[in-house]
Write a protein that binds this DNA or RNA. Structure first.
Lengths: 195, 195, 195, 195
DNA sequence: AATGAATGAGATTTCATTCAT
DNA sequence: TATGAATGAAATCTCATTCAT
C-alpha cells in the first residue's frame, strides 16, 4: 500500500465529503454519511481529519487559494490590456464553477459554518480577491480603458456579483458553455445592454 | 390577552428566529436558543409553529411573495419605459436587502435547508421571479430599448446575480445608500464600463 | 406531577450517580449506565444537569460544604475545651464516612476529575478545612492543652490523614463503630501509643 | 539497538506513563498521549505492553513490592527495638513518597482502575503490608513497648493513615524534609500531642 | 396560551486495540 | 523493533419534538 494509499484514502474522503456537502449541506451531512459511502468507519475519518470543521476549512482554502493564484497570474500578465484581463478573470471564475461545481457551491454557500480563526483567514483571502479585482478595474480606469465617472468598488461588486452568483444556476451540461457565458457577461459589463 | 397577544407572541418568535438564523445559521440555531431569548419555553414555540422547517419556510415565503408582488406591480405599470422598470426592479431588490437584511440573508443562504414540497414551492416562485425579470428584458428588446444580439436569459442572470449578491456586502450603515447602488448598477448594465 | 416530582427525579439521578461513581469510578461510569439504572433516557439526565463534570462538582461541593459547616459549629462552640473540640471534629469526620460512605469515597478519590474553576473552588474549601483544623490545634497550644514543641501544621497533617484515610477501610457494618474509632484515634493522638 | 535498547524504550514508556497518569489521571490519559510525548507510535506501546491496564498494574506492583520488601527487611532486623522499627517503616513510607511521588500518587489514587485478578493480587499485597505493620505493633505491645489497652488494628489504621495520606500534601521541595516529617509523626504517635 | 418533563434518535468525537508490513 | 492504517465500540452531549397539565 504505502504512501499512495494514504493519499488515496484521504482524498477519497475529501471527494466524498464535497459531494455530500454539496448535495445535502454541511450541517445536514454527518461523518457517518461520509464514511458509509466509502465503506470505512468513523475512526478512519478522524485518522485523516481532526474535525468536520477542519475538513470544511480545507475545502474553502483549496478553492480560494486556487482562484487567488489564478487571478494573480492573470493580473500580472504583462502583454494584455485591462479589458482582456477582465475577461480572463471572469472566465476563470465561471470556468471554476463549471469544472469544480461542488466545491464552488460549498464555497459560496457554507461560509456560515466556518468559525473562529479559520473564518478570519478565509474572509481575509476573500477580501483579497475582491481588492485585486478592484485594482484591475482601477488600473483600467487610470489607463483610460474604463469609465472614470463610476466608483471602482461598486463596479467591482456588480461584476463579481454576477460571476459569483452563477454558482446558483450554471450547469456544465447546460446549453451555454462557460466561455460563452464569460463572453456575454463581459460584453454586457463593457458595453451595456442598451441598444 | 386575546388575539392581538397571540399575534404578538407569534411575531416575536418569528423576528427572534430571523435574527438568530441570520447570525448563526439555520442549522446552528436551536429552538432552545430562540425561546431562551424570549424567556418562554419550547412548548410555546410548538404552539405557534408545527416545526422548525415550517418556520424557515415561512421566512422564505414571506420574502419571495413580497418581492414577487412588488415586481409584478412594477412590470404592470403602464406609463414607464422598460429601462425605467429595470431600474425599479433593481432598486426594489437592493432596497429589500437594506430594509430586511436578516431575512434577505436567510433567503439567499438557507435554501438548502428547505426540503420536500416546501422546496418545490419556493423554487417555483424563485423561478417565476427570474422569468418575470427575463420577460421585462425581452419586452425591452422587442421594444428596441435593449440590444437584440445577446440572449435575454444570460442578461437576466447577469443583472439578477449582481443584485442578489449584494446580500453579501450591502450594509444600511455603509457609505453608499441603496438607491445610489441601484443607479450605479443600472448605469453599468445599460451603458457598460467602457470609456 | 409538579414540584416534588422534579426534585425527585433530580435527586434520584444524583443518588444513582453517587452509587455508581463509588462502585466503578467516575471515569468508568457513563451517563448511559446511570440512566439505565433509573429506566430513563440520557435526555433526562441533561435536563437536570449540564454535564457529567457539573454533577461530580455538585457531589464534591455538597460534601465539603457539609463538613465545613459542621467544623465551624464545633470550633465556635464556647463551652468546650480544645481537646473536646478535637474529638468532636475527628468524630464528625469519621461519622460522615459512616453515614455518607459513597459520597466520601468519591470526595477523597475523584478529585482528579474536577477541572478548571470548579477545581479551584473545591481546593480552596479543602484548604479552608485544614486551616480551621490547624487553628483548633494552635488554640490548644496557646491554651496549654497541647504541646508547644511540635509544629501545628504537621500535627494537623497527622490527625487529618488518619481520619481521612479511614474512607479506605471504615465500614458501617464493621466490628468497631464510628464513635469508638474516634475515641481510639483521639486517645492515640493525645496520649500516644507508648506504654 | 539490541536488548539494552529494548529495555530503554520500555522504561521510557513506563516513566512517561507514570508522569502522565499522575498529572492527568489514568482514565484521562490515552495511549496516544503517552506515545506522542515519546515521538513513537501506538504500535510501539503494544509491542512492550499488552494493555493499558497491564501497565497500570505494573506500576502498582512495582510500588507495593518495593515497600513490602523494605518493610520486611526493617521488621526482620534483629538489633532494633519495635519503636525504632516503627520509625523506620514510617520514614520509609514517607521517603518513598518523596523519592517516587508520581508513582505514589498513582498507587494511592488509581486503585479503582485496577480490575479483576490484577486487583485481587494488589489488594492481597496491600493487606499484607497492613498485617505486617499490625504485627510490628503487636510485637511492641507484647514486648511492653506499646500500650496494651488499645486495639492493635486501630492503632495500625491511625498510623498508616497518617503516613499514606501524606501522598496528598508532601512535596520534596517543601519546607520540611521527609525524615523530619517522620520524626514528628512518630513523636506524635508515641507520646501524643497533649502537654 | 403556555409549561415542564421526558424521549429517542443521532451527532461528533475518542480510544484501546489489531495487524500487515 | 516499530509503523501506519483501520476498526468498532462506546462516550458525551444535542435537539426537534411530544404531551399531560
Amino acid at each position: 500500500m504505502g504512501v499512495s494509499c494514504a493519499k488515496m484514502m484521504k482524498d477519497k474522503i475529501l471527494q466524498q465529503s464535497i459531494a455530500l456537502f454539496e448535495k445535502n449541506g454541511f450541517s445536514e451531512t454527518s461523518i457517518q454519511d461520509i464514511v458509509n459511502m466509502l465503506g470505512v468507519t468513523k475512526g478512519t475519518f478522524y485518522y485523516y481529519f481532526t474535525s468536520k470543521e477542519q475538513l470544511l476549512m480545507q475545502i474553502h482554502l483549496q478553492y480560494i487559494d486556487n482562484i487567488l493564484e489564478q487571478q494573480r497570474r492573470i493580473i500580472d500578465h504583462s502583454d494584455k490590456s485591462w479589458k482582456e484581463k477582465l475577461f480572463d478573470v471572469v472566465y476563470m471564475l465561471i470556468h471554476q464553477i463549471e469544472s469544480h461545481g461542488a466545491s464552488a457551491r460549498i464555497f459560496f454557500r457554507e461560509l456560515i459554518n466556518v468559525k473562529g480563526d479559520f473564518l478570519n483567514e478565509i474572509l481575509a483571502k476573500r477580501d483579497q480577491f475582491r481588492f485585486n479585482f478592484q485594482y484591475l478595474i482601477e488600473q483600467g480606469i487610470a489607463n483610460g480603458e474604463f469609465r472614470d465617472d463610476l466608483p471602482a468598488d461598486m463596479m467591482t461588486f456588480a461584476v463579481l456579483g454576477a460571476c459569483n452568483w452563477s454558482y446558483m444556476w450554471f450547469k456544465p451540461e447546460g446549453p451555454v458553455p462557460d466561455n460563452e457565458v464569460a463572453c456575454i457577461f463581459v460584453e454586457v459589463f463593457l458595453n451595456g445592454m442598451k441598444k
